[in-house]
Amino acid sequence: MHAERVGGHLAGRGARVTVFDPQDFPVSARLDLVYLANEPVRRVLRCADGTVDLDAVTALWWRRPMPPAPYPELTDPAVAAYTAKECESLVTDLWENLPCRQLPARESVFRRAGRKASQLALAAELGFSIPETAITTDPESFLDFRDRHDGRIVTKPLYIPWIDDVGGHLHVNRLCEPVSTRDVAYADGLRFCPVIVQERIPKRLELRVTIVGDRVFTAEIHSQTANRSSLDWRRYDTRVTPYRVHRLPDEIAERCLALTRRLGLAYGAIDLILTPDGRHVFLEINPNAQWLWIEDLTGLPISAAICDFLLEGP
């Protein structure tokens, strides 16, 4: 839906829009990269939307592309995996080197920008308040941190918030979770996998700050009005949770822009807590997060801003 909304804005302003999912390559899409002596590189994509001279593209927007899928007639799993990896290598390298504006950034940049440990360090360097945090596989360190905060702590996944079962169906979806006395009994399990442990920050509001280029769009989420969303607003309860446009203090808005610039991002969705005593506490930044629900609930013109950014050219 996000791609359709922005694509509609772009088409309405006269832009040619090509939608290509790498999952279609190589089965129903073709790529040609030709290097000849004394001639410019020629890079051409042939897909369902037609033939595209990639060197004439003025802007590229990554909207959660899927990896290439092998031909179904490749029944040997090892051969199928090999061809898929080769296709992924080509596509990744191709986008990285196209001389055009890219949102949220070149793939290597926005993949790196999503690392939460680095985000926290940079946010603190830029002057944000951050929760006291431990990222650990040591049960003793976890227990010491819990004692430091009298048990008022939460845990979060470091990178992937879900676990798929063998069949690819969603098995576990893990967001921000409180730590109960029962959980402490299983602290030894931390040795298997790192986890983010943070002090539990009191909330007046939660803020979703969406950055597009140099523009800042902030929505306030009244997550404390519903038990379901009080710990993590991503447990959506939009029937009872108000979402409104919010005016960030200039200092915080500039800090958010500084964060995206330092990360090399032209787009980013920053999650902040506004505490009862007026502090803005940084939680994380998602370099390729959804925004359509915020736009629909608040009227913030995020899709139009993305369209503007893409049309500005190199």
Rank of each mutant, 00 (worst) to 15 (best):
R106Y: 01
H246K: 12
R279M: 02
P178E: 00
L90E: 12
V79Q: 14
L170S: 04
R239P: 00
D93L: 12
G278I: 09
P72C: 07
D271I: 12
L122F: 11
L311S: 11
A56H: 10
D53R: 04
C256T: 07
Y82D: 04
T218Y: 01
A266T: 15
I306R: 00
H149I: 03
P249W: 09
P314W: 05
W291C: 01
V19Q: 02
V195N: 03
L126V: 09
T275P: 03
I153C: 15
T238M: 06
I273M: 03
S89M: 05
P194H: 09
R43T: 12
R234T: 01
C47G: 15
E140K: 14
D164R: 15
L122T: 06
V172K: 06
G114M: 04
P139W: 04
L98Y: 10
R200E: 14
A78P: 00
G268T: 06
R182S: 11
L143E: 13
R244Q: 15
Q224A: 13
P276Y: 00
I135H: 02
S28W: 06
D232H: 08
F110A: 03
D308V: 05
D188V: 10
R148W: 01
M66I: 07
A124W: 00
C47V: 06
F145Y: 09
P161V: 05
V195R: 06
E251T: 15
G189N: 07
Q119F: 11
I273P: 06
D32L: 15
T298L: 09
L292S: 14
Y186M: 15
A84F: 04
P301N: 05
H246T: 02
G167C: 07
T92A: 07
C193K: 12
D32F: 13
Q224P: 02
L259M: 14
E251M: 10
I221S: 00
Q23F: 15
P72H: 12
F142G: 05
V195W: 11
V166D: 04
H280D: 03
R101C: 08
L274E: 09
D93S: 14
Q290L: 03
L158I: 15
F142N: 00
R262Y: 05
I160K: 02
H246I: 11
R106A: 06
R191E: 07
G114H: 10
A226K: 02
G127K: 08
D150K: 14
Y186F: 15
H222Q: 14
D188W: 09
D277V: 15
A121M: 11
E39V: 08
G268N: 08
